[in-house]
């Protein structure tokens, strides 16, 4: 758990972070979203004391971080950064082993853990003896993540973790990370300026502007109940795509026609509209079988899906 209490930071005359307070719950992913210069990265770096706040208090798992030695604190907090920041003079294995060595693990333990991680992160076995420059961008990012996860820290900080990747690689790695068991157990604070990415990965989003928090809430809340014009305009450009991501079959359940009883394997109703559409388009199926609450089953085709979604949208707009 991470908690910030009225934290402020000034650089010269610029108020980079202004009285920011939030809480990231256990196993929750909070995304700090905003344009460059909004203070999101500064906020993140204050959590592992790469930057010291001028005012306010930061607690990790209930303990003030100022009570801990910064180096010890950092070995216990995973950090994935913008430009990956791998050590070019270390092999992949040595890069992953940085924190365990600082924690004085024995060799065998480091080796086992490294093997385990590269399997989970789909890195080729022979990459361990390679240097970072010999890997692709996507692979480098996986190594960066492995390095942050290796000591299994409860808290993970991610600063634009996919910023250095091209769009195609980014989308696929985001998906993969989202499904990663190791990440689901962590309390994560992540910084991004990419709205899509925020909506893809966040449990809650903290929208920031000029050092201040504008709104904190679930993606759905941000989308359908923006607190002011800034929040509304911030998402306006990609609104439709975001809605497809945020709304799931459960939300539009009541707008879907009563299903004919069909046998076969059904999908969960927390599938979002975007993914449902993709399934319909990419597979040769013309219908999806979905099971909702009370074991009720419905089959949906593309037309029914868009119709249901439109009706849901209308009710949200008039609320």
């Amino acid at each position: 758990m991470i908690e910030l209490k009225e934290v402020s930071k000034k650089f010269g005359d610029t108020q980079a972070v202004n009285l920011v307070s939030f809480k990231v719950d256990e196993k929750e992913t909070l995304v700090l979203l905003g344009t460059s210069g909004c203070g999101k990265t500064t906020t993140l770096k204050m959590i592992n004391r790469l930057i010291e706040p001028d005012e306010g208090q930061i607690l990790i798992n209930g303990e003030a971080i100022t009570n801990q030695d910064p180096d010890t604190l950092r070995t216990g907090v995973g950090y994935v950064m913008q430009n990956i920041g791998l050590f070019p003079h270390y092999t992949v294995a040595e890069n992953i082993a940085v924190v365990p060595k600082l924690l004085k693990w024995d060799k065998e333990k480091i080796k086992t853990r490294t093997q385990e991680l590269i399997k989970k992160l789909h890195l080729p076995e022979n990459s361990l003896s390679m240097f970072p420059h010999e890997l692709s961008g996507g692979q480098q990012q996986r190594v960066g993540l492995a390095r942050a996860l290796v000591a299994d820290p409860a808290v993970l900080l991610m600063d634009e973790p996919f910023g250095a990747l091209d769009n195609v690689t980014r989308t696929s790695i985001q998906k993969e990370f989202k499904g990663l068991e190791e990440l689901k157990r962590k309390t994560i604070a992540m910084v991004t300026h990419d709205v899509q990415e925020a909506f893809e990965l966040a449990d809650r989003i903290c929208l920031m502007d000029r050092g201040k928090i504008i709104q904190i809430g679930t993606p759905k809340e941000l989308l359908y109940r923006p607190i002011n014009d800034f929040a509304r305009k911030f998402l306006a450009g990609q609104r439709l795509a975001l809605e497809f991501k945020v709304v799931n079959l459960q939300d539009i359940w009541s707008y879907l026609p009563k299903g004919t009883l069909q046998d076969g394997k059904s999908l969960s109703d927390d599938l979002n509209i975007w993914d449902a559409m993709e399934l319909l388009r990419s597979s040769d199926r013309s219908q999806l079988l979905v099971s909702g609450a009370n074991n009720e089953r419905k089959s949906v085709n593309f037309e029914q899906l868009t119709k249901g979604f439109n009706e849901f949208q209308n009710t949200q707009a008039h609320e």
């Binding site: 592992n48 790469l50 950090y79 950064m81 791998l86 600082l102």
Partner: peptide, 25 residues
Amino acid sequence: DQHVKEAARAMGMSKSQVLLKVELP
């Protein structure tokens, strides 16, 4: 590269470790 130095600090290396393990090499 500033990012490499920052990564070293963020991993929990002390200043002398950053010097000996990252900067000098």
